[in-house]
Computed example of a mutant assay.
Amino acid sequence: MAIVVQLDRLLLDRRMSLTELSDRVGVTIANLSVLKTGKARAVRFSTLDALCRELNCQPGELMVQAPGPQPGGEQGEG
Rank of each mutant, 00 (worst) to 15 (best):
E54G: 01
L55W: 02
I3K: 15
L21H: 07
E74S: 05
L32G: 08
N56S: 12
R24D: 04
G76S: 08
G60N: 13
I29A: 12
D23M: 13
S22R: 13
N56I: 02
R41M: 09
Q70A: 12
P69R: 02
M1H: 13
D13R: 10
C52Y: 01
G72T: 07
A66W: 07
R44I: 02
T37W: 05
T47Y: 03
I29E: 11
L12Y: 10
P71W: 06
R24M: 06
S17Y: 09
R41P: 10
R15A: 14
A30Y: 14
R53S: 07
I3S: 08
L11Q: 00
E74V: 10
R53A: 15
V5I: 12
Q70D: 09
L18N: 05
V27A: 06
R24E: 06
D49Y: 00
K39C: 00
M1Q: 14
V25D: 06
L21I: 05
A2D: 03
D13Y: 03
G78N: 11
T37V: 05
V64M: 11
R44F: 02
A40Y: 06
F45T: 09
S33M: 11
D49I: 00
G68C: 03
L7I: 05
T28I: 13
G76V: 07
M1G: 15
A2G: 01
P71K: 08
R15P: 03
G72S: 07
P59N: 07
P59I: 08
D13G: 01
G72L: 06
V34M: 12
V5Y: 05
D23P: 02
Q70M: 11
E54Q: 09
A30W: 13
D23T: 11
A40H: 13
V4H: 10
C57I: 15
T47M: 04
V5D: 02
T47L: 04
D13C: 01
C57T: 14
A2H: 09
L10A: 02
S46A: 13
G26N: 12
Q70G: 04
V25A: 08
L11R: 02
A42I: 07
K36W: 06
M63F: 14
S46D: 13
P67N: 10
S22Q: 13
V64F: 08
K36I: 01
L62H: 06
T28D: 12
S17A: 13
L32Y: 04
E20Y: 00
M1W: 09
Q6I: 08
L10G: 02
L18F: 04
C57Y: 03
Q6G: 11
F45P: 03
